[in-house]
Write a protein that binds this DNA or RNA. Structure first.
Lengths: 180, 180
DNA sequence: CACCATATGGAGCCGCGGTTCCGCTTGTAA
DNA sequence: TTACAAGCGGAACCGCGGCTCCATATGGTG
């Protein structure tokens, strides 16, 4: 298990980069051959680095979750809990809207395990607890609601192309989560 | 274009019946061979009646929409507009929850054209107008919101098996649609 | 250098599932 | 009862796309 050879390390990066843009554009059913072509690499090389298409997809999903976790960290710095929560949701939704592959992933498989692993769930829980403490979020809301919301969001983004659709979805959901 | 032969008419029914339960159980990616087996019919016969898998799926989707349209008719008889709307949404959601194939259909392709054709959209619009008139539904809500909601619902039902998940989704969405 | 473990490319394999094809059966009308 | 158009069954076809395999190339080490 020694370190990767230099060219291998370089290729791994190129593959991830290529996969990111191919899957973002065309969704999770884009072909590995396209990724390989875009990375200027043979299919075999892709499979050397990621044993399976799913493994590659998972790696990308994990990257996105990490990115959103960083946004959650920033949100935790803010004073107004509801505003922080709301903006976090909007920012994540915007990221989704640019990445069909990620939307496919969250719309088709429950990703809550990944969200927990990378620490996102914990941070969101804290944010929600604060908003509930100052009475701006409905008392019965939980992180599971967020999972449910994201599943739906993925599908809306994928199915109805107009940005107005997912924006409306987020608006309604946030109003549903607000204290009445 | 004379009437179908008696046995053909019978088979057509069996195929629809079989397809309904196979796709409801296994989702839209169930195989035509399974449908044929369940209908006790050869694959060729399925293709004689429905030129394409998609055509078969479409026929089933249309049936479900017609069924929901009937529910909407019943809802229009009721006095309290919000209650009528809310219950209609709950009943449709319950139908979805029993039919993975339908969920796949609404989660993957925008079905608003079908909803309009079969008269569902018109009826829902009337119901919403009434609820808005007596101030129980948010003034900016439209039938497009319902489309967006159903897309998300399909995905939630498919992706998170526990009924609690889609029930929660509907709860949040309805609260989002209520006047604040 | 020389060597070899590591890495690469991409033609080809393989299973899957939608669809077609055609020899046979059956309902029906005369 | 016969004739034939309409209908049927299901083996086989075929394109697609994930994945494998191996002859070849290359980075790093002594």
């Amino acid at each position: 298990m020694r370190p990767l050879r230099a060219d291998a390390r370089r290729n791994r990066e190129r593959i991830l980069e290529a996969a990111k843009s191919v899957f973002a554009d065309q969704g999770a059913d884009a072909q590995i051959d396209d990724v390989a072509r875009r990375a200027k690499v043979g299919v075999g090389t892709v499979y050397r680095h990621f044993p399976t298409k799913d493994a590659l997809l998972d790696a990308l999903v994990r990257q996105r979750f990490d990115q959103i976790t960083q946004l959650a960290d920033a949100a935790l710095e803010r004073d107004d809990a509801w505003d922080a929560f709301r903006d976090l949701v909007w920012r994540s939704a915007e990221l989704n809207a640019l990445d069909r592959g990620f939307c496919d992933a969250i719309a088709h498989h429950d990703q809550s395990a990944v969200a927990v692993e990378c620490g996102l769930t914990g941070r969101v829980a804290e944010l929600m607890a604060r908003a509930q403490a100052d009475g701006t979020m409905r008392a019965d809301a939980s992180t599971e609601d967020i999972g449910v919301m994201m599943v739906g969001l993925g599908s809306v983004v994928r199915t109805i192309p107009a940005p107005a659709a997912w924006r409306r979805y987020v608006t309604l959901m946030l109003d549903g989560l607000r204290a009445s």
